[in-house]
Nucleic acid binder design. Structure first.
Lengths: 337, 337
DNA sequence: TTTATAAATGATATCGGTTACATCAACAGC
DNA sequence: GCTGTTGATGTAACCGATATCATTTATAAA
């Protein structure tokens, strides 16, 4: 592999001239520039970007912590990030954390060891928490999707409370009174906000909140199935189930069908995220569409702006949601609800 | 950010001693080592790994080219890669190529510019093809999942021909005679192998091959729906549809239902990949399970072995498949098939 | 005690670029 | 012809580690 010195020698100029000919061609005379470019081509010279990054102190790498890349929603977010990062000349260092804090830390350390310029976290946990750091200094980090209030950093989020409220209102309007919520882990701020929105809607409609209709899941198909099965076993089962993501909703639909009920004639089911499978569920899933790719691209844009010093106060970007009404929700069955 | 020189000064030793105290502690006396470690802690010193990488010429980065991260199967592959890479001390530079050759090239270039030590390609295309390179030299590249014969590099693949043959045999055993195949793009080696396996099984059973039952898709839910709809409109429609991935199979099931037919009573449907949604389709999908995570981890292991010079001849690793029989396939309807 | 050997440490070149500063030539103005 | 300015190029310091080689110190053998 040839170096800039090889090029300089072949072109019979100094290394500085070679560097300039490539970086700021306008500073080099046409004659010299041509000589240099000829030598570059002849040697197949490619600058060692590791040296450049080392010298400049800028890696143009971004660490991305994803709880599960296998989650369809996150996969879309990553896709959006990757596109935006590439456009800005950055690369993504991906970590599938499985919510493991050791793993998160291990990757967060890359920022401190100059392997990456910044980090995007998609989970409500500060990966730098356990690492020593100078207090007060703004860490090059963006928190997206599931946002932690305690971290003072730029965030990208949905108005989850309003979205959950809107979906609950939709179900209430269909005449449902016993609306279950298949939620995520209790400690998740995402879940907290969405449950709050759900309660907002119930309160506004004068429907009593029933703790037993709150059923925890873990965002997997299996957990949706399990939760639905449990809810149907209640003495007074719900007529609608609002799930915190589409995977759990699809799992719930299967559980309901296996218990011998029909969706939506007996039980309505709603999801969240509008993943590609939602429209292909049977029945197609009513859900909240989130601009997943935009989450990713916005997070990258904020982070790059932060890194390059173009960001003032840590902004909170709120992205819009959209209630997509499909066939999995319908009027509450007569005589119940 | 403090450097090794700051530590050396504070500990009143040379930089070489600091480096040794951290890298080969056994070469440094206990007394000196303690002094150094105290200084390290006091300054919060973290070695600049960019400098290390530059100096050593080893980046410990691997580029991964994924056609679509939003594809559930690939998401699992990535997950497996990430785990294996982390265990070996490597990081993944992810690129969602969308099968765009410019994008692939742009990332492949990272290998030439010393930003990454190697590359994993999940698509049958040589991303280095358009870049100048010394002929004959073994490129640090591994091809997995969809494998290109023309590239002489380590590969990880399924015996797609045998798998497709097994699934076709399964359908033949159920009495089906008109078995359609919803395949991928014609130019894909994956598709070529699977179609070959499908024909193997037909030949062995003495069933004539019918070109009109080969319907191309693009691995999306939508294309499965479209293909199924078209197949049902044939004068003599199939009684079974073998799809080249689960997404298309799930799309096909929806298309079949919407056309007023039942799965599997009227039409059997089989998929490929066994993604998580397969078991939650209605009816649950008969499919070929692939060890997706193992694809990823094996690819990383091969690549790291190749990079570190532990690999002899470019091996072809063939991973096992498993036919998962669920409810979407059943006996051919009487009087037809 | 002296010498040979091993262990510990220091001085410094090096990796491959970028860039501040020095140098030099050409040319304009006086 | 002399000086000042501009443009083009060269010299060498620098980024932060690692590693080679030289040197010093400690230990063992004679």
């Amino acid at each position: 592999m040839s170096t800039i010195r090889d090029v300089a020698e072949l072109a019979a100029v100094s290394v500085a001239t070679v560097s300039r000919a490539l970086q700021q061609p306008e500073l080099v005379s046409l004659k010299t520039r041509t000589k240099v470019l000829t030598a570059v081509k002849q040697l197949g010279y490619k600058p060692n970007l590791m040296a450049v990054k080392f010298r400049s102190g800028k890696t143009r790498n971004l660490v991305v912590l994803v709880p599960t890349v296998a989650n369809v929603f996150f996969a879309r977010v990553i896709s959006g990030m990757q596109q935006a990062a590439h456009d800005k000349g950055y690369s993504l260092l991906l970590c599938n954390t499985l919510a493991d804090e050791e793993m998160e830390q291990s990757y967060a350390r890359m920022v401190h060891t100059s392997q990456a310029d910044g980090l995007i976290q998609l989970r409500a946990h500060n990966p730098f928490a356990a690492l020593e750091m100078k207090a007060g200094s703004q860490l090059p980090m963006v928190n997206a999707c599931e946002v932690l209030d305690r971290i003072a950093c730029p965030t990208v989020l949905l108005d989850n409370r309003a979205a959950a409220c809107a979906m609950t209102e939709h179900l209430l309007e269909l005449g449902h009174k016993r609306i279950a919520m298949i939620k995520g882990p209790a400690r998740s701020p995402l879940t907290r906000d969405r449950v709050a929105g759900y309660r907002d809607a119930l309160n506004a409609a004068g429907v009593a909140f029933d703790e037993s209709l709150l059923c925890p899941g873990d965002f997997t198909l299996q957990s949706g199935h399990k939760a639905a099965t449990e809810l149907l076993a209640l003495p007074n089962p719900p007529t609608a189930m609002f799930c915190e993501n589409d995977e759990m909703a699809i799992g719930a639909i299967q559980g309901i069908k296996q218990a011998g009920f029909s969706v939506p004639a007996d039980i309505s089911v709603a999801g969240f995220d509008d993943i590609s499978f939602a429209a292909f569920a049977d029945p197609p899933l009513t859900t909240i569409a989130q601009p997943a790719e935009e989450f990713g691209s916005t997070a990258v844009t904020l982070l790059v702006d932060l890194i390059e010093g173009r960001l003032g106060k840590a902004p909170k970007v709120i992205l819009p949601f959209d209630l997509i009404q499909r066939a999995s929700t319908g009027p509450a069955p007569a005589g119940r609800g």
